[in-house]
Design a binder for these strands. Structure first.
Lengths: 151, 151
DNA sequence: TCATAATTTGGTAGAAAGTACCAAATCGGA
DNA sequence: TCCGATTTGGTACTTTCTACCAAATTATGA
């Protein structure tokens, strides 16, 4: 479905999401119209789910971030759905993954400062029903925060 | 440094990285030229570090992803730098964070299939000098994979 | 193998947006 | 309050987008 030329387009648009269609067409080696049509097809197929400006966390005033390991008391659909719904809603939670291993979920949370993180735990996380355990690992340094899939 | 109107711009460009300057100017409530200048200033100040197309992992053919917890044998600058350099290089590693807690580093790795993941471990991760321990948690489900800071 | 249908391609032209300039308005400090 | 500095909105020129066309390529079935 996604063929080689599409992957070139995707790779390039991951590197520069605002590349003009002309640049794009040139780097992948096709005409502007053909290239433009393929990009639109990728968008409509949901392969490209959107575009985003990448904002430098610290420069934008978000000094604190952490990785949370969360496990649930029980795994009824009821509790799981509730947890997923709340976490999806909450904008401080940038990422949430259900994983194998001891913890059920891995979350990455970004806030302005430690105070905000404390409030996040008290007012949000600890009030979610059915939580067994939450372990916080504060992020000391961001070695790498990429979004580009390795085509 | 980053004031209220800038935050509106950043929020909007995070939601739609390809919004036209006109749309943007309208939603934040200023003239196109003023808006355009602010965007450029944010780019030049490195607050906006880039733009990217967001690609749907599975639809693009990357079926497998995992979270790795890595701890180092020793924490000499030599080993740390080597680890950071290699991990930064490797494109399957989308994210890497140095954290508090048992593991020194948290990584998120994305590959096409389990075979590729196995190769990633054998040919890359286990050959990094000074690694004490690697624990893999396979991602069963992506609840949320956001990039937008919570302005 | 060949004819034909279906799909994809490159070119083009009108519409839309980006970009750089200007004078006017607003803001800050003394 | 006054003056310099900064930011603003308007405008004109340039670039880019986008939808259309006919031509080329690819796939299909007899």
């Amino acid at each position: 479905m996604v063929e080689e030329q599409d992957e070139k387009i995707l790779a390039e648009l991951q590197k520069d999401g605002r590349a003009t269609n002309q640049q794009l067409a040139e780097t992948v080696g096709m005409s502007t119209s053909a290239c433009w049509r393929r990009v639109r097809a990728l968008e409509e197929a949901g392969v490209i789910s959107g575009y985003s400006a990448l904002v430098a966390r610290e420069r934008a005033g978000f000094a604190t971030s952490a990785i949370l390991h969360v496990s649930l008391e029980r795994h009824d659909v009821k509790f799981v759905d509730e947890f997923v719904a709340r976490v999806t809603q909450r904008r401080e939670v940038l990422e949430c993954f259900a994983t194998t291993g001891d913890a059920d979920y891995h979350l990455r949370v970004v806030v302005r400062d430690m105070d905000a993180y404390n409030r996040f735990l008290d007012e949000f996380m600890f009030r979610i029903p059915g939580i067994r355990h939450v372990r916080t690992n504060v992020i000391l340094k961001e070695i790498k925060t990429g979004v580009a899939l390795p085509f």
